[in-house]
């Protein structure tokens, strides 16, 4: 048994939401620089240069890299031997967001009710996903998700007979429909399998995987490579102005599914897959 203070969780969340918004992850910067090197279309090069410059300004001046500082999505892996004291973990997380968005000069982008649409003015609540795991550690993954790209995401319950080709077509169709809207170059997170809700979580988790990583299963790693190539053959390009670099990476996660189904979800992100992780 191990005791973790809820106040620590609040402090870590506050730090992570600010840092996620100011500092582009290293794997993303590397992917952008590679894309810049390999894209020989002048218009694309100019835009990639500006996106890289923007990340450097945000980093040096400690300002948000994007005005859409996102809705906060939290993935928790709670060791079953952990006990949280001094408060409820969900409250501790939302308090961290409240403080981080105020002190970090971040935009408050959450409305309390999807129909009545009144801003909560502190960017809470977060979407929190809880998972109980073995051990005595608490792992917290924080993502700040912008909605220009979230709005372009799609889910489809394919038939088993649609097979691999059906999955590939759905991914390409989703990127095509998104076009210039999600601020390409994008990152494509794909979930395959599970159930209606599971497949979307898989696609979100896929987005949080490093851009220089591949699925551990060689079949899915190859599929990631193939789909990135095909996405980048669409010609949408940075900002949709035409060019090679439509996406920096396609990440795929899968899960067992029902004999009658083949769920597939495509979660789109802009180039900046803003996230931070800590283990307490």
């Amino acid at each position: 048994m191990r005791i973790i203070d809820a106040n620590n969780i609040t402090e870590e969340i506050k730090r992570m939401v600010i840092e996620a918004n100011y500092f582009l992850p290293e794997d993303v910067m590397k992917a952008l620089e590679n894309a810049r090197k390999n894209d020989d279309w002048k218009l694309s090069q100019d835009i990639l240069d500006k996106i890289i410059e923007n990340a450097r300004i945000a980093d040096t001046e400690q300002v948000p890299m994007c005005q859409d500082t996102g809705m906060v999505v939290v993935f928790l892996k709670i060791g079953q031997e952990v006990i949280i004291k001094n408060g409820y973990i969900g409250d501790a997380i939302n308090e961290g967001i409240r403080r981080g968005y105020e002190e970090g000069y971040l935009r408050k982008s959450v409305v309390g009710d999807p129909i009545k649409r009144l801003n909560t003015n502190d960017n809470t609540p977060a979407v929190i996903n809880y998972e109980i795991v073995p051990g005595d550690k608490l792992n917290i993954m924080v993502a700040v998700k912008g909605f220009g790209s979230e709005n372009m995401s799609r889910l489809k319950m394919l038939k088993p007979s649609d097979g691999l080709e059906g999955v590939k077509d759905f991914i390409l169709e989703t990127v095509e429909l998104a076009g210039s809207n999600p601020c390409p170059p994008i990152v494509v997170g794909v979930g395959i399998g599970g159930t209606f809700e599971k497949v979307t979580l898989l696609s979100k988790k896929a987005l949080l995987r490093d851009l220089d990583s591949y699925n551990e299963d060689p079949f899915y790693a190859d599929l990631e490579r193939e789909m990135l190539e095909r996405v980048n053959n669409l010609g949408i390009g940075p900002q949709g102005f035409g060019g090679r670099t439509t996406a920096l990476k396609v990440n795929i996660e899968y899960f067992p599914t029902h004999i009658a189904g083949l769920p597939v979800a495509v979660n789109i992100n802009c180039h900046a897959t803003r996230h931070k992780e800590v283990t307490l």
């Binding site: 300002v63 948000p64 005005q67 859409d68 000069y105 935009r107 982008s109 220009g148 809207n181």
Partner: peptide
């Protein structure tokens, strides 16, 4: 655009475009 709050010395915070449709 829906900008972020301005820090000291800024007229406006970060201010990129939002999706037009």
């Amino acid at each position: 655009v829906g900008p972020t709050p301005a820090k000291d010395g800024q007229a406006l915070g970060s201010a990129g475009p939002t999706t037009s449709y």
